[in-house]
C-alpha cells in the first residue's frame, strides 16, 4: 500500500510551499524525486521532476500573487511516474500533465485556504485586539493543520484519480518515444527559457553570460 506514505509526503510538500518551513522541499526536482523514491523508482521521479522544474522556473511565489502549488503536485507526478508500466513512452507526458493539472487545482485550494484563514481570523478579531496569545497560537495551529490536510487530500484525490488514467494511457499510447519526449522537452524548455529571460535579462552582462553558458552547455551535450 503506497498511498498512505505518498499522501503524507504530499501533505508535507504542500505545507512547505507557504506555511512551514519553506525549505523548498516542495520544489518539483525534490518533491517528484522523493515521491518517485516512495513509489520505488527515484530515477523516474527525478526525470519528471526535472521537466516540471523547468516549467516551475516561471512561477515565483511572490507575496499574495496566485501561483500553482508545485509541492503536492510533484509528489503525485513522481509517484505516478515511478509506478507506471515500463516500456511505454506515454507515462512521461502523462505524469507531467498530471503535475500541471494538480498544481493548478492545488493553487486554487491554497486560495480557498487563505480565504478560510481570513474568515477564522475575522471571527477572532476581538481576541486578537485583546492580545490573546491563546488565540494567536490557535489560529497558527489551525492554519498549519488545515494546510497539511489540504495537501494530503489533494495528493490522495489526484493520485487515486490519475493512477488508472496514466496506466490506461500507457497501454493506448500511439506516438513513438522520440516524438513524445521531444514534445515534452520542447514545451518545458520554451517555458524555462522565457522564465530565465524574464527573471535575469535586466542585469548587465546577463545576455552575454547566458550565451557563453549556452555554448558551453551545447558543447557538453555534443561531446558526451
Amino acid at each position: 500500500m503506497t498511498l498512505l506514505p505518498i499522501a503524507l509526503l504530499g501533505a508535507v510538500a504542500g505545507l512547505d510551499v507557504v506555511s512551514f518551513p519553506q525549505a523548498m522541499i516542495s520544489r518539483p526536482i525534490v518533491a517528484a524525486t522523493v515521491g518517485g523514491a516512495f513509489a520505488g523508482n527515484a530515477g523516474a521521479g527525478l526525470l519528471v521532476g526535472a521537466a516540471v522544474e523547468l516549467i516551475a522556473l516561471e512561477t515565483l511565489p511572490v507575496g499574495a500573487s496566485r501561483y500553482p502549488e508545485w509541492g503536492s503536485a510533484s509528489v503525485v507526478a513522481g509517484a505516478l511516474a515511478a509506478g507506471a508500466p515500463p516500456g511505454s513512452p506515454g507515462p512521461v507526458p502523462m505524469t507531467i500533465l498530471a503535475a500541471l493539472a494538480t498544481a493548478w487545482v492545488g493553487g486554487w485550494s491554497m486560495i480557498a485556504l487563505r480565504k478560510w484563514n481570513a474568515v477564522r481570523a475575522r471571527a477572532h478579531l476581538a481576541d486578537l485586539e485583546r492580545g490573546s496569545a491563546t488565540t494567536v497560537n490557535a489560529l497558527q495551529l489551525w492554519g498549519l493543520t488545515a494546510d497539511l490536510a489540504r495537501g494530503a487530500a489533494l495528493t490522495i484525490i489526484s493520485y487515486s484519480a490519475l493512477r488508472p488514467v496514466v496506466d490506461a494511457a500507457a497501454v493506448h499510447w500511439r506516438v513513438d518515444a522520440r516524438t513524445s519526449r521531444a514534445l515534452v522537452v520542447g514545451a518545458a524548455a520554451a517555458v524555462a527559457v522565457a522564465a530565465v529571460w524574464k527573471v535575469f535579462h535586466w542585469a548587465p552582462l546577463s545576455r552575454m553570460l547566458f550565451g557563453a553558458g549556452l555554448i558551453g552547455g551545447v558543447a557538453l551535450v555534443v561531446w558526451s
Partner: peptide
C-alpha cells in the same frame, strides 16, 4: 542574475538532453 544567466545557459541544454 548574472550567475543565473550563466547557469541557465549551461543547465538548459544538458538537462534537456538528459530528459
Amino acid at each position: 542574475a548574472r550567475a543565473g544567466a550563466l547557469l541557465a545557459g549551461i543547465a538548459l541544454p544538458v538537462a534537456l538532453a538528459r530528459v
